[in-house]
Amino acid sequence: MHANRRQFVLGSLGTALLAATARSRASAYPERPITFICPWPAGGTADITMRALCLAAAKPLGQTLVVENKAGASGMLGLKAMATAKPDGYTIGQIPISVTRFAQLGTVQIDPLKDLSFIARTSGQTFGVAVRSDSPWQTLKEFVAAAKAAPGRLTYGSAGIGGATHVGMEEFALAAGIQLNHVPYKGGAPALQDLLGGQIDALADSSSWAPHVKSGKLRLLATWGEQRTHDFPEVPTLREQGFDVVVDAPNGIGAPKGLDAAVARRLREAFKAAAASPEFIAACDRIDAPPMYLDGPEYEKYVAAVYRKETQLIERLKLKELMAKG
């Protein structure tokens, strides 16, 4: 056989062998536990739903999903760690939808449309504004009146600068014509503790406040969804109270870009089953989070649409200036 021809045949065999090895590895996936990065503190609402989801996804995958909390930078610290991991299917995690905003603000070096593999959108969040029950404000109208009387004096906590709760609250403040003093935290859980402890006047968060509203320690002034929530039907939405603001910031699951197609399919199937599981639905019910499942390709389209919307929001709220002020 001619030397060049032999090299070509051997090279082709080598390539075929590598492809076959990759295929068999993908079909054997997962062979070991999978790390799931939750970019929020343990005990928060995202952490509660993500842990239930991972527990349910472990069954069809036949492997444990180990939840690793990597909080900070409004969820971007953990997301960056996930996006830059090896795309072998053994590091996946939650995608906060606010990456569509942070990528454009330059606070995270990730292009969500180029640097991530999308597995599933899972559930929305119920956001709201809560105050302590011993506070002087019985209604949102009274809170707005107090803020108008003392611009910049009333403080509110959120899960971090530029996150859904901060931006939603600033959108509401703009619509109400008030100025509030924002106190950013590394997640909703520490902000809630400071509200309960009296260090801040109000809390803008997903439903971490729910058990404390039910026990009578906190008062819920408004929720931010399209409709009133299942657990608090007596509390009006922002829109019902005259402020055209809706925030539901759905959570999703992703992996680094470059995931093998067979591995991606396996994960999509597992998380589709997990999103419909009784454990996950129960965890969502517990924090009044609406299930909002979308499969990977549809979820990717949704993220692209949110990205375009965020471009307008950044300009309207002058978010770049807000971020610079800290």
Rank of each mutant, 00 (worst) to 15 (best):
R6L: 13
A289C: 11
G188A: 11
A275G: 10
E31R: 10
D88L: 06
Q199F: 10
F172K: 07
V306P: 02
V129N: 09
L259G: 04
I95L: 12
K320E: 13
D285S: 12
L79A: 08
G252Y: 05
Y29T: 00
G157C: 04
A283Y: 05
G128T: 03
I97V: 15
V131E: 00
M323G: 03
A28W: 13
G163P: 00
A56C: 01
D288Y: 12
V306S: 09
R6A: 14
S12R: 04
E234W: 00
E68L: 00
L53E: 04
G198T: 13
S74W: 02
E234D: 12
P39C: 07
A305D: 15
A58N: 08
P291F: 13
D111G: 03
D201K: 05
P297L: 14
K309M: 15
A204T: 03
I34C: 04
S27C: 05
G197N: 15
R132Y: 07
N69G: 05
F127E: 01
R51F: 06
A204L: 04
V245Q: 07
R25I: 03
P184T: 06
G75W: 03
H2T: 14
P190I: 00
E321W: 02
L319N: 00
H166V: 11
V66F: 07
A283T: 06
L319T: 07
Y293E: 05
L195Y: 03
A262F: 01
G93P: 14
L18G: 12
G78P: 03
V306T: 09
P233K: 02
V144K: 02
I287V: 15
E170A: 14
A261I: 03
A56V: 06
I178P: 01
E310L: 08
L218M: 11
E234I: 01
G163T: 14
F102M: 13
